Amino acid sequence: MSNENEITAHGLALLSLINHADLNDRGAMLYSLIDGAKFPSLGRLTLPNDDSVTLHSLLGESAQVDAIYAGPVLLRHARGQHCPVLTKLLKQANSAHFLSLIVSDEPFPILFERLRWLTDVVHDDGTEWVMRYYDPLVLPHWLGVLDRAQRAAALGGSRAWVYIDMHGRPHSFGSEKIGDAVAIPSDPMLLSQQQCDELMSKTLPYMVMHQLESDDQHLLSTLSPRDRYAFFSQQLCKASAYGLSSPADLKCYCMLSLMIGAHFDASPVAAEALRQASPDDSFSERILSWTPEQWASLEESDSIL
């Protein structure tokens, strides 16, 4: 386990991928893309006076000052991997959850506008919202739902974009040809309903995990961090197969799978509640009426499955 004076193992893995991108070739620049909502100390980060590190909010000029540090922020590191601010970031124990690194050949104004274009998204029903692609956990799922043209525009000019995935493994992606920049479309980034639904499905496990940890920070401790995404994906698929769809029911189902066991649904008391669940009598409401005897029966049933 690293101390506060050491770069974390995840941080070293990211730097290793950056080194393969060859920052010294053709003036490529290193950037860190930060999810401010997951790094509360961002607003207290001290930058050098020589402009070797500059901070740029991707929310636009209309954003409130207090919102800037809770949104997507791009840091430009003129000293590359030798930047002390980058080193400080990579010493953070949870840096893999709030930071990804970009090596780009593009002039800064063009890269900035490209990332701004990715941030402000229009749904095909006309609504507008901020896309959280800058969250490293969301990043690969978001990229996976983009069509070929959107992906090319997103990665255009990026030599490498590196991050740590949900299993703790380092990954890198970039444009197919180094420096092969694709023009930023004049129209806003548009996502279809199908793309939104697919992205929601892939990121739902993170949302449920966050809700459960907010209720009890120790609730997920029985699972290895590397196994959590797969576990919740499987449990949410099972819950959906039972017809559960409300946030309360999905959260309740996953909570029981953690507390009782992954196969709790096979016990008679749980099977009955799942079979009778309806919009007027939801699964989460039904379990509130369980007696102590039913709870004991549930735990006993799972222990012998």
Rank of each mutant, 00 (worst) to 15 (best):
M259Q: 13
H263C: 09
G261E: 00
V269H: 07
E285N: 13
E272K: 14
E272G: 01
K251T: 14
A273M: 11
S289K: 15
F264K: 12
S278A: 12
L288H: 12
L250A: 02
S282F: 10
L256Q: 01
M259K: 14
D265L: 06
C252T: 09
L258Y: 04
S257I: 06
M259F: 05
D281Y: 07
S289L: 15
F264N: 07
M255I: 11
P268L: 06
I260W: 01
G261A: 04
C254L: 06
L274G: 00
H263Q: 13
P279F: 09
P268F: 08
A271L: 11
K251S: 09
C252G: 03
C254K: 08
H263Y: 13
L250Y: 05
E285H: 11
R286E: 07
Y253P: 00
L256G: 01
L256T: 03
L250G: 03
A266S: 10
L274N: 08
K251P: 00
I260K: 02
C254H: 07
L258G: 01
K251A: 10
D281S: 11
K251E: 12
D249W: 05
A277M: 07
A273T: 03
S267Q: 09
D280T: 15
L258W: 02
A262R: 13
I287S: 02
A262T: 14
C252M: 08
I260H: 06
G261S: 04
A273C: 10
M259P: 00
T291K: 04
A262K: 13
S284I: 12
P279W: 11
A270E: 03
G261N: 01
D281M: 11
S289V: 13
S284G: 02
T291G: 04
A270C: 04
R275K: 14
F264T: 10
